[in-house]
Design a protein around this nucleic acid. Sequence first.
DNA 1: ATTTTTGCAAAATGTTTGCAGATAC
DNA 2: GTATCTGCAAACATTTTGCAAAAAT
Lengths: 166, 166
Amino acid sequence: MESAEQERDVDGLMGQFHDYLGKKQLKSTKQRDVIARKFFATDGHLSIEELLALARAENPRIGYATVYRTLKLLTECGLAAQRRFGEGQAMYETAGDTEHHDHLICIECDHVLEFTNDEIERLQEQVARSFGFDLVRHKLELYGMCPKARGIKGGSCPREEAEARD
Amino acid sequence: MESAEQERDVDGLMGQFHDYLGKKQLKSTKQRDVIARKFFATDGHLSIEELLALARAENPRIGYATVYRTLKLLTECGLAAQRRFGEGQAMYETAGDTEHHDHLICIECDHVLEFTNDEIERLQEQVARSFGFDLVRHKLELYGMCPKARGIKGGSCPREEAEARD
DNA sequence: ATTTTTGCAAAATGTTTGCAGATAC
DNA sequence: GTATCTGCAAACATTTTGCAAAAAT
């Protein structure tokens, strides 16, 4: 179960995005570029609202609709993936350059860690096959309490660590 | 990986619901009873809209808000669980009398099968522990193509089987 | 009698869409 | 030049809430 975090090749991803636009005879615009670039440059999970804020930092006239439409394009071409953790609005994360991963979410501090586990993946295949299914994809989310949330001495809360870094 | 389907003790569940209402000094009403009973009596997954329709068959004056509020109560006391598969509205399923289970969803016909797999559960615990987390709950959804959807001779689509039974 | 609940309609979310003007090809 | 895109506002879909009348304790 390796923690999945790595350098992201923003320019390469922008290239893939432009390829997709070209193939579909769609146009490459300033807005789409700003939104996609900000999106690719961000680790972790972004809401539409957060991405809009990032994009507006560069071009204040960008509207909600354009972010929604751009994120839909990115999802279509496999460069973004929509996630719905708890309630509320959808979150998006970069996909495509990243290996598949699952999520471990602290129910106390809401921080999201990513992980993969080959053994679980293998068993999932096995389950699907046992029902005659061809497994296409899956979603696995573990919800629990991080060490700090449990009040363990010396334990640290992933969210507080992350915030301390900012 | 046993298929999870069993008799449901509707009266027992109604009892649990009434106990909860009593404990919280909430009132037991005709509407809540109709909604809860219809909900408990239904296998599988129900949307608010479907449950409203079932309830209105018995009492046409029941409104959306009451269904939402009742389902929220049922969720609070652990007798219902909210699920969000793809997009759109939330689905609810009976919980409490039923063992935990995960979902296997056909991306072609949308039918949802339930399963459990102890080995996967064990590995999930292990992953959570390796990050210092106390695992509280999890969500595992497998998306794939059922035999019929894959066009295998003699294969059957779970949804078509289900519809044939109606 | 008091407190909670209901049903309605209005408000609050989160997301999509229609359209006139702007932009990319 | 033509087709697509943008930003806005309006439409939409789902869920929540305020309130006066109704029902439960």
